[in-house]
């Protein structure tokens, strides 16, 4: 399989980047997208050229490291899928594939396809945890949690922090990510004690980092690998009002 990659190359945060074209041969349909990039990099090494920097860790859709913009979509052409789960069979022989890093003011480019997503970490630091020291794993039945509540909390906990929601959003809003982190804990009895400060602190940080506001275009829920729904953002808004009144 033969494809033409057009890949964003940028040496450092301050340098000017550009799309560079690479003709790539010898790919197979069974290769994952990241393996295709590995393949390209091997060729570049042999030619003594600088390899394309891109991030990954698990390569099985759980770490959230691998996000890039592929042919105008976050994580490529499919809905709800990470870049590492995308395979070359989703493209045709001879295709041109444009690969760009996430674009958002709060996600500065580090190098090539790698962006700095520590803004997410700073939002998490504002309260996406409970402050009680829990020691070792407690007896599971000591705090009863209704099945619907634990299921709903698990759905929110599925967010892998990949940043696709921000990357695809016309406002670079982090509302989907932040709402998932907030709702996850605020739904559970363990999270209730700090629900209002958690919400106010985390949303404040979201704004401090320079993320935009939410227009509900719903692009994020289409690209989100964890299928977090935009109703999660509406729920965060409802909780915001509650926190302002009772918090």
């Amino acid at each position: 399989m033969k494809v033409t990659f057009k890949i964003w190359r940028q040496d450092s945060p301050d340098s000017k980047g550009e799309l560079k074209t690479y003709e790539t041969d010898g790919l197979t349909e069974d290769m994952s997208f990241l393996e295709a990039l590995d393949h390209l990099n091997e060729k570049l090494v042999l030619k003594n050229e600088k390899v394309v920097a891109f991030e990954y860790d698990c390569r099985e859709g759980i770490c959230g490291q691998c996000g890039v913009f592929i042919n105008g979509r976050a994580h490529g052409p499919h809905d709800h899928m990470t870049t590492c789960q995308l395979h070359m069979r989703s493209f045709k022989d001879g295709d041109t594939i444009t690969v760009e890093p996430w674009q958002a003011g709060a996600f500065p480019i580090v190098k090539d396809l790698v962006v700095d997503r520590t803004a997410f970490d700073r939002i998490v630091e504002q309260g996406a945890y409970i402050t009680a020291k829990t020691g070792t794993a407690p007896e599971a039945n000591s705090i009863p949690v209704p099945k619907e509540v634990s299921d709903a909390a698990m759905d929110m906990a599925a967010c892998i922090g990949c940043g696709a929601c921000v990357a695809t959003c016309k406002n670079a809003s982090a509302a989907l990510f932040t709402s998932a982190k907030i709702n996850h804990l605020n739904k559970l009895p363990q999270g209730k004690a700090e629900q209002h400060t958690r919400l106010l602190d985390m949303t404040k940080q979201m704004e401090v980092e320079g993320f935009g506001s939410c227009t509900f275009t719903a692009a994020c829920e289409v690209e989100c690998p964890a299928e977090i729904s935009i109703s999660s953002i509406a729920e965060m808004n409802a909780r915001y009002v509650k926190a302002k009144i009772f918090g």
């Binding site: 105008g72 674009q103 016309k170 809003s173 320079g210 509900f216 719903a218 692009a219 289409v222």
Partner: peptide, 23 residues
């Protein structure tokens, strides 16, 4: 403000595949 948050934008962006034009 949202335009400022966005940064430079993509060379290729197929927004019509994940959201409505009006939104």
């Amino acid at each position: 403000k949202n335009r400022k948050s966005k940064g430079t934008g993509y060379r290729v962006n197929h927004k019509q595949e994940n959201s409505t034009w009006a939104s």
